[in-house]
C-alpha cells in the first residue's frame, strides 16, 4: 500500500468536511477497498472512516419503510431485516463470508457499485431511496454503470430506504472463485407491480429485466417467464461464463427467486 492517513469522524458533518481535502476517500468497511489498496491500484492521501458515525448505523422502521444506516454491517441486516424484508435479509446473509459481513457495510457496497455486488440488486428491485449527506436519490437514478453512481465527489451514502415488498427473494448464482454474483436476481413484488433487478451479468452493472417484470406483474409465477428469453448482448464474458450463459442464468435465477419469494 501507498502511504495515507486515516481519520475517524463521529458525525456525518465531520466526515463530509474531512472528505473535502484532496484525494480523500471514504472508507466504509473496506472489504473491497482494502484489497484494492494492497495491490497499489489506488493512492488516496487520506481515508475517512465512516465506521464510527453512530447516526449511520442501524435499522429503523419509518412508516413501513425500512431505513438502514449507510454504515450498517451486512451481518446486522442479515439478522435484523428478516421480519419485514426477508429477501433483503437473505441477500445480506450471503454476501462474502461471515468475517466480511462483520465489516462490510451497505453504504460502502452501494457506493462502490461493483457490477457483481449483491446490494445494488436489492436497492434497484425495491425501488429504494439512497439517502446521502445532501439529498435523496431514487435507486433507478443512482446506479449509472459499472463502478459508477450518481454520487458527487465527497458525497456519502448515509442511509438506504427500502419500501416493504409483499414478497421478495434473491437468488445468487455464484462465480465459483470469488463467490460474487455471476448472476444475482432480486425479485420484489409490490402492490403496483413486480420489479426484477439483475447483478453480475451486465457490462453496465445492475439493471432491471423489464420484460420479466411485465410478465411477473401479470402473473407472479415462474411459468410466466417461460416464453421469454434474455438477450446476451451487453452481458459479461469472462473466465467463468460467457454472455450466453449469463443471459440464460438470468431467466433461471429469476424463476427460482419467484418460486422462493415470500
Amino acid at each position: 500500500m501507498y502511504a495515507f492517513d486515516i481519520e475517524r469522524p463521529t458525525t456525518i458533518a465531520d466526515a463530509v468536511a474531512a472528505l473535502k481535502s484532496d484525494e480523500a476517500q471514504p472508507l466504509s468497511g473496506g472489504q473491497t477497498l482494502i484489497p484494492t489498496l494492497k495491490s497499489r491500484l489506488a493512492a488516496p492521501s487520506k481515508l475517512v472512516s465512516l465506521s464510527s458515525i453512530s447516526e449511520m448505523v442501524g435499522l429503523s422502521d419509518e412508516g413501513g419503510v425500512l431505513r438502514i444506516g449507510g454504515a450498517t454491517k451486512h451481518d446486522t441486516v442479515a439478522k435484523e431485516a428478516g421480519g419485514s424484508h426477508p429477501g433483503l435479509a437473505g441477500l445480506a446473509g450471503k454476501i462474502g463470508d461471515p468475517a466480511v459481513r462483520h465489516r462490510g457495510t451497505i453504504g460502502g457496497s452501494i457506493a462502490n457499485n461493483d457490477p457483481a455486488a449483491c446490494y445494488p440488486a436489492a436497492a434497484l428491485a425495491h425501488g429504494a431511496t439512497i439517502v446521502t449527506d445532501r439529498r435523496e436519490i431514487a435507486a433507478d437514478d443512482f446506479f449509472t454503470g459499472m463502478f459508477d453512481t450518481a454520487l458527487e465527489e465527497g458525497e456519502i451514502v448515509t442511509a438506504v430506504k427500502f419500501p416493504r415488498p409483499e414478497a421478495s427473494n434473491y437468488q445468487k448464482f455464484e462465480q465459483p472463485a470469488s463467490r460474487f454474483a455471476m448472476v444475482g436476481v432480486f425479485v420484489a413484488k409490490f402492490a403496483d407491480g413486480v420489479r426484477v433487478a439483475v447483478t453480475g451479468a451486465s457490462e453496465d452493472g445492475v439493471f432491471r429485466w423489464t420484460e420479466g417484470e411485465e410478465a411477473l406483474s401479470a402473473n407472479f409465477s415462474p411459468d410466466a417467464l417461460d416464453g421469454l428469453s434474455v438477450s446476451a448482448e451487453g452481458m459479461i464474458t469472462d473466465l467463468h461464463g460467457s454472455a450466453d450463459y449469463r443471459a440464460h442464468l438470468v431467466k433461471v435465477m429469476t424463476k427460482r427467486a419467484v418460486a422462493a419469494a415470500r
Partner: peptide, 11 residues
C-alpha cells in the same frame, strides 16, 4: 495469467 488471485482461481 488470468487466474491470478483467489478471485479467479477457485480453491
Amino acid at each position: 495469467l488470468l487466474s491470478a488471485t483467489y478471485m479467479d482461481y477457485t480453491m
